[in-house]
């Protein structure tokens, strides 16, 4: 019990001194995760659409080669960025750019570098999610759109992607929550996120465990609120399950009043008697 009161006192002490730095860290983490996830989704959707442009033997050869090339490039992108740790990607980009351009080109700010890395990383995961989302939409939906004269782009934007988006909402939520936590590796390039606030606080106070407790509680709170909001958003997307009837439908016949010119159904006669009666 004694230890817990000590922990409480230490946390109060930490908060008094570094509270603002923790809070601004929370803000930076959330903004980075949100922007990174949104841009990542955008990248994912672009890759998903490019990946599913249909081509066959009748397609013009130049277009066919071009589409093949695009698929290869996307494949390489996905495999590279899904297959390497984000912490290394951050270092690679942040120090790679000035290295190759002899310091003439570098990231204007830590923010730009962090957003680029998180977006590209998320995009690699989302590309596959979006492809899965597009595949999961009933092929009849695409045929229905084509049958009223829509081209690939119109079919995608009006019919397929809205449904694919709904199908992959849980995955987008997953990615957002993962980003809230995993942006903590951005301290490696000096990004001032929530975890960076911890490193700064313990560097001066040496209160490692109390600060880690603050961090644990902080991250958990952020992710719980995020999951709650995502569920709410999913329900919003599904829309209301009821609708307003404008007037009576005169053509619908109630079951049993089958009405077809010159035809009856096998059910029109007397119902067969049940056994044992």
């Amino acid at each position: 019990m004694n230890k817990f009161t000590q922990l409480g006192a230490d946390i109060v002490k930490l908060w008094g001194k570094y509270g603002n730095s923790y809070l601004s860290g929370v803000g930076n983490t959330l903004v980075l995760a949100l922007v990174g996830t949104l841009l990542g989704c955008l990248i994912g959707f672009v890759c998903g659409v490019l990946n599913t442009i249909p081509f066959g033997p009748s397609t013009h050869p130049v277009k066919r080669i071009f589409l093949r090339l695009i698929r290869v490039i996307i494949r390489v992108y996905v495999e590279v960025f899904r297959g390497t740790p984000m912490v290394l990607q951050a270092v690679f980009f942040y120090y790679g750019l000035p290295y190759f351009t002899n310091n003439t080109l570098k990231f204007a700010s830590i923010w730009a570098a962090a957003i680029v890395v998180v977006s590209i990383n998320t995009g690699a995961y989302m590309a596959e999610s979006v492809r899965g989302g597009i595949i999961s939409v009933d092929p009849g939906q695409g045929e229905g759109a084509k049958a009223i004269g829509m081209n690939h782009f119109q079919t995608m934007t009006s019919v397929i992607l809205p449904q694919a988006l709904r199908n992959i909402m849980p995955q987008i939520g997953n990615n957002f929550i993962i980003n809230v936590k995993d942006t903590s590796v951005m301290f490696i390039i000096g990004f001032p996120d929530f975890f960076a606030a911890h490193r700064a606080a313990v560097g001066a106070s040496l209160l490692y465990f109390p600060s880690a407790t603050v961090e644990m509680a902080g991250y958990l709170t952020m992710t719980l609120i995020a999951s709650f909001l995502l569920r709410w958003l999913e329900r919003r997307l599904d829309g209301s399950s009821s609708y307003e009837l404008v007037q009576e439908d005169a053509l619908t016949l109630t079951a049993g009043t089958y009405n077809h010119p010159g035809r009856s159904t096998p059910f029109d006669g007397e119902m067969p008697r049940r056994k044992g009666r």
């Binding site: 939906q141 229905g144 759109a145 084509k146 049958a147 004269g149 609708y243």
Partner: peptide, 22 residues
């Protein structure tokens, strides 16, 4: 093909109404 299909309508066995729209 799409401009041609706009002039030739099609009704499917499985309806294929867009489920994201009213």
């Amino acid at each position: 093909a799409s401009r041609y299909r706009a002039r030739v309508g099609m009704v499917f066995q499985s309806f294929n109404l867009f489920s994201n729209m009213t």
